[in-house]
Design a protein around this nucleic acid. Sequence first.
DNA 1: CGGATTTGACCCCA
DNA 2: TGGGGTCAAATCCG
Length: 364
Amino acid sequence: MENAGNLEQKPLFNELQQGRELVKQLQMHLDPSYSEETRNMLVEKILSSFDKAISMVKWVSSDGEARPTGTTPVDSPRSDSGSPHSEDSDRRDIYKKRKTLPRWTEQIRVSSGTGLEGPLDDGYCWRKYGQKDILGAKYPRGYYRCTHRNVQGCLATKQVQRSDEDPSIFDVTYRGKHTCFQGSHLIPAMGTLESSKQMLKQDQVHHQDHLPEQQNEQQQAQEILFHFKTGLKVRTKDLDTGEQQQQQLMTSSFSFPSTPFECLKTENHIFSPPTVDHYFSGNLSPSFLSPATSESNYFPVSPCRVNSFGGGGYRNLQTSESDLTEIISAATSGTNSPIVDLDFPMDFDPIFPFNSPDFFPSCS
DNA sequence: CGGATTTGACCCCA
DNA sequence: TGGGGTCAAATCCG
């Protein structure tokens, strides 16, 4: 986190700026000719924006440590199938690391109206590697890991489990941060649509990695982004205040376009922050229905594309192990704003040539 | 044909 | 020892 300081300020700055913009918009909309709904939405967005900014401040000030043991994120665990010994210890390390990896859970509600259920797309490219029946749970739990695991050594994983009581709710537990550069990270939100498609078929995912702190931050940021874009509504339990408000927000009117940005899939996602910003600021179109298909098994899967959820809202996030997580969540819950920039700062070098074609690998 | 998913077996930890 | 998590061969799909 060397230059984290500055980097982190950017998102904060963006957040504040956004808040200001929203206030301006609200001001314009004070005109009675605008619907009350619109005004409420703006108010919520503004609140959310400030909440996020606050979260960021907290985050920055407490930046600390959530760093998992290993600071070497990337390296595919098994890549070196060399010595048997190492393989063995590798595996053990993995377990150990796993424990220390930041982990957080999000509850995502999928709209069931359309028959689609898939919601959970966080913009990352996930590959399902397992499914298991969990004791006491009606539905099996799906295990997903980052598609780029082998290529980039991204250890992020996620578990998706459908709620017993409310099948429309999926508990998604993320573990580890993404160390890979997928477009999704950045533009994750969009990934939602397609993801849903897949998700429909599958369960849930989990993702995470043990990344260094930077990565953590990144991830968080990314997550936030996702949610935003995706229109997901996620919340962290830990978040204390503001959440409800935020939630309302989310639930209320906003949804992100599930456009194909993301779909840009990994290949191009170059997420340009600005773009994202624009998105948020201006267009969040309410397209809730996801085009995705409807075949579903248990869970929706989200590959790398976008899904849009139908209207649901996320419910709680539980979690967490670290403050970061909380922060993240908080931010996440904030929702509608463009926090996009957060990611950048943390992950990438500002000067990084995102446009470079080879920068992003492809998702599938 | 390559990549993703399925699914039973295996491993580790509580 | 059992449950949860992961592996990996088989299978599916585009």
